[in-house]
């Protein structure tokens, strides 16, 4: 039973990640490969604060989100001037820089040794120390994220995001400061990715930089594409599919190294199949056809 709960927790965490990625890639049409970096910032901030100060889970989340938002401004303000291809490469480069910092800033992150022994989260004095309680926490965070994303995307703000995705020149010609919208949604997306990172750190209780690489950014993007970009539920569906499907590999006798490779082959194949035959994914609205 614990195994299924753990799968559900991971699905919720990656669901939050995928929804946050969709804000940028699916709603605003900005293909970013820096998301694992924000995920890592949230994880490390939460882990560091909790271990060194024993603070509440909420404090760790807020600190991680604030750092992620600040870093997102550093990334987005200059790179959003770049056109589509170069923006992707710019985010790629940023992800490599973030990984380099996480891997080499040993005084804070302990480098490749990672941070272990991350304690269970405490919320207003209540310790969350069973898997069921953690699942409830993760689901509450997921519902919160879904609510905020729904508010944003169904508002005039969301309408302008969709216009920017389809034709930024049209949006500018009608008085929309498109840079403000893109920077703002990047910041929100980074904050949610950091929230997912905080949950991840407390769930796995050990983090190291290898969980926050370019490959992980590509995985998150795959979840958005397979589930369907530009919709509220698509990224969540994609996260559930890509987290639970490879779990089936455990039952066919593959070693963990083989399973890791097969998992990546499945991700890559699904990504290709979706983009070739169903660019809007399983339940999405946007097919990256700009």
């Amino acid at each position: 039973m614990d195994y299924f709960i753990q799968c559900a927790v991971l699905a919720a965490i990656y669901g939050i990640l995928a929804i946050s990625m969709d804000l940028v890639a699916g709603q605003a049409g900005l293909l970013s490969i820096a998301h694992a970096g924000f995920f890592g910032i949230g994880a490390y901030a939460s882990a560091f604060l909790t271990l060194h100060t024993g603070c509440d889970f909420a404090v760790g989340v807020i600190a991680g989100a604030c750092i992620a938002v600040a870093v997102s401004f550093i990334l987005s303000l200059p790179t959003l001037r770049l056109n589509d291809d170069y923006f992707v490469i710019g985010t790629f480069a940023f992800q490599m820089i973030l990984f380099s910092v996480l891997n080499n800033w040993t005084s804070v992150t302990r480098g490749s040794l990672g941070i272990r022994g991350i304690p269970s989260p405490t919320i207003f004095g209540c310790k969350i120390d069973t898997s069921t309680e953690f699942l409830i926490l993760a689901c509450c965070c997921l519902l919160f994220v879904l609510f905020v994303v729904y508010r944003i995307t169904s508002s005039p703000f969301g309408r302008v995001l969709h216009a920017i995705r389809e034709d930024e020149v049209f949006a500018k010609a009608h008085g929309k400061n498109t840079l403000y919208f893109k920077v703002a949604i990047f910041a929100v997306s980074a904050a949610f990715a950091a929230l997912a990172g905080s949950l991840f750190a407390h769930d796995i209780t050990y983090i190291d930089p290898t969980s926050f690489t370019v490959m992980d950014s590509i995985l998150i993007l795959s979840m958005v594409i397979i589930g369907g970009a530009g919709s509220l539920w698509g990224p969540l569906v994609g996260a559930v599919v890509l987290i639970t499907l490879p779990e089936a590999l455990r039952f066919i006798g593959l070693s963990s190294a083989e399973a890791a490779n097969v998992r990546q082959i499945i991700y890559g194949s699904l990504l290709i199949i979706m983009m070739m035959f169903r660019p809007r994914g399983l339940v999405g609205k946007y097919g990256f056809n700009k």
Binding site: L31, D84, D85, I225, I265, L271, I272, G287, F288, K290
Partner: peptide
């Protein structure tokens, strides 16, 4: 198809080819 679509397909191909090689020959 847009350039984004081709880029995403190429990412998928990278994952598949790299991991096919790894599953046949190891890391």
């Amino acid at each position: 198809a847009s350039k984004s679509t081709s880029l995403l397909v190429s990412l998928g191909l990278f994952l598949v080819i790299r991991n096919l090689i790894a599953s046949i020959w190891g890391d």
